[in-house]
Every structure is written in C-alpha cells, then in structure tokens.
C-alpha cells in the first residue's frame, strides 16, 4: 500500500487492521531520524497529520480533551497556553520552531522517552489517553501507558486519539535543565502544578528515571505546609525538605548528558525554584 495520508481516524484504523505491519507517522521528528540513519526502513505508512479530528480540542467546566495531532507550536500559542500553562511551557522547550511545528502531543507520548518534555506535565495532571483501533476504543492513564524506556501500552493496530486533562485552578511551572536554551533534550525536567480546589500540589519529574512519574511523598508533605490563603513564600526549611523529598524519589542514571549525582542535585534545585515561583507573594 505504500504511504497513505489518512483523512479520518476510522480510515487510519481500518488501514492498520488490514496491514498489521504498517508504520504510524505523526510529526516524523522521531521516526524520520531513525529512517535517515538507516535504522528503520519504511514500506507501509499511515500518515495521521492531516486528520482534522486529531488536531482539535474541546473543553467543558472541568476538563479539556486535546487531539493527539496537536503540535507543540499550537500548545505554545496563547489560546491553549492560557488554559494549560505548564504544558505550554514544556512544549516551548521542545527542539526548535521547525521541530515544534511538526512534532505532536501524541508523538511525544508514543515515543515514550524518559526525557519526553510533555510527559511530566501529563503525569502530574493524571492525563487519560483515549486509544482507538478498528475494534473499538479504550481509556488508559498516562502512567499505565508509558511502560518503560521508549515503550508504551499500544496494541497492534491502535493509535492515540486524544488526551483528557482536568482543568486546574492555580499557578503552574515547568522547568528543564539542558546544555543550552534551544534544541535541547532534557537532562532533568520538573512540572509543579497547584490544584487550589483540591488543595494539593502535583509534581511530575522527567529524565530522572526510566519513566516520568509523580513525586507523591513530596506532594503529600508540601500540601500540609502550603499557605493556601495567601500563597506566601515558605520557610527555607520547608523548601529544603520538599526539594529533598523530590530528589530522594528519583532513580537517575549516568549517561552522556549528565551523571546521576548531577541529576539528583538539579532536580532538587528545580523543585525549590518551582515552589518559589508558584508562591506568588514574597515575604515582606
């Protein structure tokens, strides 16, 4: 069948059911690197990038549902950035304008890299993915979806259709350490989201373990210390304890981008910095 540009989710799923060896193509920013290297050769391809139903989003009082084909550029634009600030910040740190125009939310999830920039945010928000195949659809949480380093829970013939996120009230931060500002794969990343209604803080970390995860112990500690009335800056002792709990929950490795020790140190620095930024009022 060669390369087919699908026009609908149903068409894409039908093609995948007929030809199980078909490669799914979204933005191409991961796949084509492997193809150009000769590590992967393409025969049958279904391109999802022109399926309009995957590019839209819907919103109600409590949730937003993002199509998996939404690009990092679109996530960074004011319309979505005002609703999902941490996801917008994370998207803006991906690659370059060229990469952000092509790469998609669904692609970031499917690649499931430990350094995938949107994943710490999605984990912190308990994102629910809708997966679709010719047999039907199912929902799965993001932490069940990302099963290991670059592995995911997609069955043969399934694609990611959408990502459902709760609407949180409160400040959000995404921070990332890399060797420079542009074109950087995270050495460490951290998302901190305040849920004012639920009176909780959510912490997602990336590049410090095989899969991005929530630092739940640190979350529980800080929820009790946070100044929910005034959002004032917290005492140094509290900030240090919080950042230590975040760092202690990580299991980083040494690699060419940084040592485990450096990653532990950096994630603590990011945790403290993010906490200071969501505490809006400075001590007088």
């Amino acid at each position: 069948m060669g390369v087919i540009v699908a026009k609908s989710v149903n068409e894409a799923c039908a093609l995948l059911a007929e030809n199980p060896d078909t490669t799914v193509l979204a933005g191409g920013t991961d796949l084509m690197v492997q193809v150009n290297k000769g590590a992967s050769s393409l025969e049958n391809v279904v391109d999802l990038t022109r399926i309009s139903e995957l590019k839209g989003w819907t919103i109600n009082d409590s949730e937003i549902v993002l199509g998996s084909g939404i690009s990092y550029s679109d996530l960074s634009k004011p319309e979505l950035a005002s609703i999902l600030p941490a996801l917008a910040q994370a998207s803006r740190t991906v690659g370059s304008p060229q990469i952000r125009n092509a790469g998609t939310l669904g692609g970031n999830l499917a690649t499931a890299s430990p350094a995938g920039d949107t994943i710490p945010v999605l984990v912190a928000m308990n994102a629910i993915l809708k997966l679709r195949s010719s047999k039907g659809q199912r929902e799965i949480s993001v932490d069940e979806f990302v099963t290991g380093v670059k592995s995911n829970a997609l069955h043969a013939g399934e694609i990611i259709e959408s990502v459902r996120l709760p609407l949180l009230e409160g400040p959000q931060e995404f921070l990332k350490v890399g060797i420079r500002n542009a074109m950087v794969i995270s050495v460490v990343s951290l998302a901190l989201l305040v849920d004012d209604k639920g009176k909780s803080l959510r912490v997602g970390v990336g590049s410090v373990s095989p899969v991005p995860f929530r630092a739940t112990e640190a979350e529980e500690f800080i929820a009790g210390e946070f100044d929910w009335e005034n959002y004032s800056q917290l005492p140094e002792k509290v900030k240090s304890r919080f950042s230590k709990l975040v760092a202690d929950s990580t299991k980083p490795i040494d690699d060419h981008r940084g040592t485990a020790e450096y990653r532990k140190h950096s994630v603590a620095v990011l945790a403290k910095r993010a906490l200071e930024r969501v505490c809006i009022r400075t001590e007088s």
Partner: peptide, 12 residues
C-alpha cells in the same frame, strides 16, 4: 510553516 525537510517523509 517552517519545518526540517529531512524529517518530512516525501510521499506524505
């Protein structure tokens, strides 16, 4: 939109 043409599958 600007993109890297090396990462675009030509037939797509």
């Amino acid at each position: 939109d600007v993109v890297c043409s090396c990462l675009v599958l030509a037939a797509s």
